[in-house]
Amino acid sequence: MLFIAARLGLAALTIAGVATLVFFGMRLIPGSYADLFFPLASEADREAISIEYGLDGSALEQYILWLGKLLQGDFGTSLVTNKPVIDEIVQRLPLTLELGFLALMIIAFIGFPMGIISGMFHKKWTSQVGRHSSTFLMSIPNFVLGSLLVYAFSVNSLGLKAGGWAPLSEGLMENLKYAILPAFTLSITGLGLVLATARSSVLGVIGQDHILAAVSRGLSPKDIFSKHIFRNALIPVITIFAIVAGYLLGGTVLVETVFSLDGVGRLLVNSITRRDYPVVQIGVILTATAFVLTNTIADILYGIIDPRVTEKNDG
């Protein structure tokens, strides 16, 4: 329990660090909100605008003020649209979450089995294919794959849409038509990673003494697979899976750009260029929190599975 508490404490500390970094980082960017939106206004007018939007005073003062509000659950208001930041984000979250979820499904149901197969038949060509294709998948930048898909499907759409979006409310099939290509694009790196991990952990297990012992005991291959190999291979894959899941939320920026989607990733990019500080701050904190939490959960799971971690952890 103490271990779990310590882990959560560290997670909170990390998120606080991210919050601080993004706050001051945004304020280091030249050109303030007033400069950007009222370039023709006089110096005095721009000063007045800064006061109106609460952007006056030193960065430190603003930081303390912002942190105080944040801790009370006040996420602030977008400077550009004057809507609550949380609304701006929640509005776009379904798209980004759905892409992330679908990408995870692709990774789980394609990457994992492929990795297991490639590991099981490690002396055969399947293993080599598995090894090379995992490296290859991890080598394709997702915006390259995305552009390629946009091009290929603009030549022959096969009923799929490369660009744009239909929300789930318009029906699952309609939604999937739009979601499948960006989700696949998003999954590519994780796919390679999980494939490689599953493959190598199967390889690692197969050579171990207890498997050899099980074989010599005459256990059926089916039992060996389900009782020994699969279970052992699962543990590292789950960890990797958690890490990939944590990254997906922050990893959609380019996919959303390539497929012209209005998700959280593009909101963040647009908000940086518009100096919409409150949106960037909350968006980054949210993304970092997703990352830290999935990692913390993975750590805790790992600690439960492998008690040595809790004892020796010195992080």
Binding site: T14, V18, M26, L249, T287, V292
Partner: peptide, 16 residues
């Protein structure tokens, strides 16, 4: 510090 940099969405970090 490494934790914080690690948790910061990397492309957004690059943009900033």
């Amino acid at each position: 510090m490494a934790d914080v940099l690690f948790a910061f969405p990397s492309l957004i970090f690059g943009l900033i």
